[in-house]
Nucleic acid binder design. Sequence first.
DNA 1: CGATACTTTGAAGTGTGTCAAACTCTGTGG
DNA 2: CCACAGAGTTTGACACACTTCAAAGTATCG
Lengths: 226, 226
Amino acid sequence: MDKIDALKRTDIFAGIDDSLAARLGELAVMRGMEKGEILFHSGEKAKGLFAVVSGKVRIYRSSPAGKEQIIHVFGPGRAFAEVPMFQGTDYPASAQALTRGKVLFFSRDGFCRMIERHPDLAMATLGLLAGRLRSLVSQVSALSLKEVPARLATYLLLLQSSQLTRELELDLPKGQIAAYLGTIQETLSRILKKMCEAGLIAMNGKRITILDHDRLALLAEGEEQL
Amino acid sequence: MDKIDALKRTDIFAGIDDSLAARLGELAVMRGMEKGEILFHSGEKAKGLFAVVSGKVRIYRSSPAGKEQIIHVFGPGRAFAEVPMFQGTDYPASAQALTRGKVLFFSRDGFCRMIERHPDLAMATLGLLAGRLRSLVSQVSALSLKEVPARLATYLLLLQSSQLTRELELDLPKGQIAAYLGTIQETLSRILKKMCEAGLIAMNGKRITILDHDRLALLAEGEEQL
DNA sequence: CGATACTTTGAAGTGTGTCAAACTCTGTGG
DNA sequence: CCACAGAGTTTGACACACTTCAAAGTATCG
């Protein structure tokens, strides 16, 4: 896939006009990534902005003790590392490839100059940041207000909402999902088991079927317990 | 309450500087809403951004079958419809006033025009959102990676960094601080006591003195325990 | 000075993390 | 095709940080 095509498929640059796309294309560098590869570390000086072309990238932070909290997981078409473009200069979190794939890279200076000159690009970026802000706010409240079962229920319902059926396939290994939910594999495993026993879901490896959508929603709201 | 005041109390524009606030203030329109009033319908083209000044607004979607799903309920200070506003897309959900109240409205056209005329407004708003994202990222990771003592230590050091002396005054009732740290009054109280006993701080009501800055910093990093 | 809000302290209960081990699945190479 | 390695997953026993519940103590303000 060529660069211009790829960048038109990203959330930030969707809908831009051709001449601008061409110029951004000159700016962009396509690069491959291997599974497990670190794209940047938290605290490092930001060199630029990324957009996923193929594969998956996780944005996370780790504690000295080695525990990790996943902040986001981005798939094709999603841009990341925008924050240091506009505030501060170092990455607030680390990025690692979850799979083999490709990313587009835009250097910081070039991108900033583009934004200043093109108001609609600025608007698109504002939209992107506003969306991120929203998801982080709900992540914060979930982490501090809800217990793991409620967070898991929310996650399952979110995954399912993008499906047509009552089935869903976990898009990440369970350990990664646990890290996203702010917990660990073992706890996740136990809670999934409880959910099965309670008749809320059925599980078969990575495939999960929602059996009782309403009670799962109650659980997600914290109005009911497991 | 006047417009400038109100917009400074909103989540997205909190911490905005005065000149920017003044310019946004020109753009903003304060309007009343009656209980039950529909502010916009899902699928409508986004005309702008709202922020609740007083009262409550619910964001909901209704299915073809007539069933309604409430997605959010927003109270004073919360902005909504930012994403579609910045992206120029349709409203993905509907908004209805749950109570009598007031909202601030920022029209998309006006905002766009202002951005075109003042590119620095775009950069400033981007910087604002980016800064909030940065702090939210830290909050998310702190909640799951650090224990309460470490979060509290971080908070104290943050408060103190804006002071000239080693003393600091708690800006919120302790119950509120506890909520911010993702815990409860009682726990906070106990940990403060422990910190006193360990000689890290001295406490006198709402006034706290940092006695051992270095060890507090180690605690905040999770490198040491209480 | 009394009422209300805030804070502190104690005892008991619980969700979740830790450690350790067994188990399953997948793909690889002999 | 089987055996093996390695990652991912599940399970159990145990420890502990934190919450809950309850009550007493302390500020603050009319």
